[in-house]
């Protein structure tokens, strides 16, 4: 983008040129599958979700109560040295009302996702989850109080989705 440059290389084509065979191409669809161990801290966290409880880890040096829990404090760089439960109620830190799915395809009904600061955890310690039973999405506000809606105990498998979603509450 200099006045000394008169020509910029690049030959534009259209996405439909692939479908219509106007450009030569090869295609490939990966079939790899993965299974991740949940690790030391998050395995305990997931086990407790089965019991309907939200587990945090604590650092005796910086005094933080951290959720999601971890086995090391990233600030003090030492092992966390305690476990505690936090509440399943909290406050909306921020939220989004999404009309697009993960592949950018369009949704008829929006998904609402929020960062929820959980009661009992250190300030600003949020987790990301869905919000539901909110009525009109335009009425959702940062600072609203919410509570977890759990799956019935027999349906819990030890996953973040053992919490079905959070819903607004009046206190």
């Amino acid at each position: 983008m200099s006045v000394k440059i008169k020509h910029y290389p690049g030959e534009e084509i259209e996405t439909q040129d692939f479908r219509e065979g106007k450009v030569l191409f090869e295609s490939f669809k990966p079939k790899a599958k993965y299974a991740w161990s949940a690790g030391i801290a998050i395995s305990r966290f997931l086990e407790e979700l089965k019991n309907g409880r939200i587990l945090a880890s604590t650092c005796s040096k910086c005094k933080r109560i951290m959720v999601p829990p971890r086995i090391y404090c990233e600030k003090c760089f030492k092992p966390t040295d305690g476990w505690t439960y936090v509440k399943d109620t909290g406050t909306i830190n921020t939220f989004s009302v999404s009309f697009i799915a993960a592949d950018a395809s369009r949704l008829k009904e929006p998904i609402v996702v929020a960062i929820i600061n959980l009661d009992g955890a250190s300030e600003g310690m949020g987790i990301v989850h869905w919000l539901n039973e909110y009525g009109d999405w335009r009425e959702i506000k940062i600072g609203m109080r919410v509570k977890a809606v759990w799956k019935p105990p027999e349906e819990r498998v030890g996953a973040i989705t053992d919490i079905k979603y959070f819903k607004p509450i009046k206190e």
């Binding site: 939220f95 989004s96 989850h129």
Partner: peptide, 25 residues
């Protein structure tokens, strides 16, 4: 994160939206 975030169906636009909303608020 494969354990805590992907099951929620996180997508990139969401995290921008969450940040933008927090900044506006």
């Amino acid at each position: 994160d494969p354990i805590l975030e992907r099951p929620i169906g996180m997508n990139l636009i969401w995290i921008f939206a969450l940040e933008m909303n927090r900044y506006m608020h």
